[in-house]
Simulated assay, not measured.
Amino acid sequence: MPNILFAARSESWDEYETPLNAALDATGLPYTLGTDIAPEQVDYIVYAPNSDVQDFTPFTRLKAVLNLWAGVEDVVGNSTLTVPLARMVDEDGLTQGMVEWVTGHTLRHHLGMDAHIVNPDRAWDTTPPPLSADRPVTILGLGTLGQACAHALTALGFPVSGWSRSAKNLPGITTYAGDDGLHDALRDAQIVILLLPDTAATANVINAGTLAVMAPGAMILNPGRGPLIDDDALLAALDSGQISHATLDVFRTEPLPDDHTYWTHPKVTVTPHIASTTRPETAARVIADNIRRAEDGTPLQHVVDRNAGY
């Protein structure tokens, strides 16, 4: 009978206890689930990287760590973690939430909604926006979230290009890969969406050089990770007009400091890291299914590549 330790902030246990028990019950496995299990008795850890568990050495019979978050940058380099680490991939919750945020803000910028919502001069500008077919979109990052967003925007008629560290082949989407393909993917893009993981290879992927190859007046959406953007370079591009607006959901420091320029910049929209989040009901089913797979001797899903960092 597996013993499952829930290791996250105490308020998270209140949200997850009932959904996790329901999802585990549905597997038919006998189990013990709790927040206070002796380390040497723990088989699985349902884990948030901001929990008190940072040293995995005492967990001598541990089989796997099941991350509650999509991002693993705060745990993947932990040298005491030697068992498989699975990241959260939840199509019904986290992925769907990201698709909705990205689609909503893409349409907002595409249609020019801000000028209609805030119009103190009562300007009566009847110039229509272009149709989606005339608005090139580039997505940096073609993992689960990037692919889902790419397919959703393609269905709305946007010509979508995507870039990833390794080559991908996605029907209906023009794909680029590697360092050589980054500028090609961004060239003439009018809306750029960042959905890359936070790794040494992706830090400051949006910089003075990559900003310069986008279409003049391009718009940027970042629901991915704060360190993807060189903040000084982005602010300079906003001030020059090369970038007309940036909608940012993630930042190097969170919450975003009160005195940060992004708060008051007229061409920046700040959202408080709400693009998508783990939903307990759907995430619990992902966790329970992975534990069932491990107990059945089936390979875990969504195992992190420690070398790649995601």
Rank of each mutant, 00 (worst) to 15 (best):
A22V: 13
R135N: 13
V42A: 11
D74F: 09
P30A: 14
G93P: 05
D36V: 01
P129T: 10
T175H: 06
V268C: 05
P171E: 14
T210Y: 02
T95S: 12
D239W: 00
L235W: 04
Y262G: 01
A212I: 00
A167D: 12
V83H: 06
V75A: 12
H273P: 03
I139M: 04
P19Y: 12
I45Q: 09
R306P: 13
P49K: 06
V205D: 02
L234F: 07
E11C: 03
T247Y: 03
L186Q: 05
R292Q: 15
S244P: 01
T175I: 05
D55R: 00
G77W: 05
A208R: 12
R9Q: 15
N222K: 04
P129N: 11
M214S: 06
R225P: 01
H183Y: 09
T202K: 02
N119F: 12
M214A: 08
A212V: 02
D232G: 09
V160A: 09
T35S: 10
A189N: 05
G181N: 06
L68K: 00
L85N: 04
I206H: 02
A7T: 08
R187M: 07
N3K: 13
F59L: 05
N307A: 13
D198V: 01
M1Y: 09
G224N: 06
S79Y: 00
G217N: 07
A48L: 13
T210G: 06
G104P: 08
L211P: 02
R108E: 14
E100T: 15
T144Q: 12
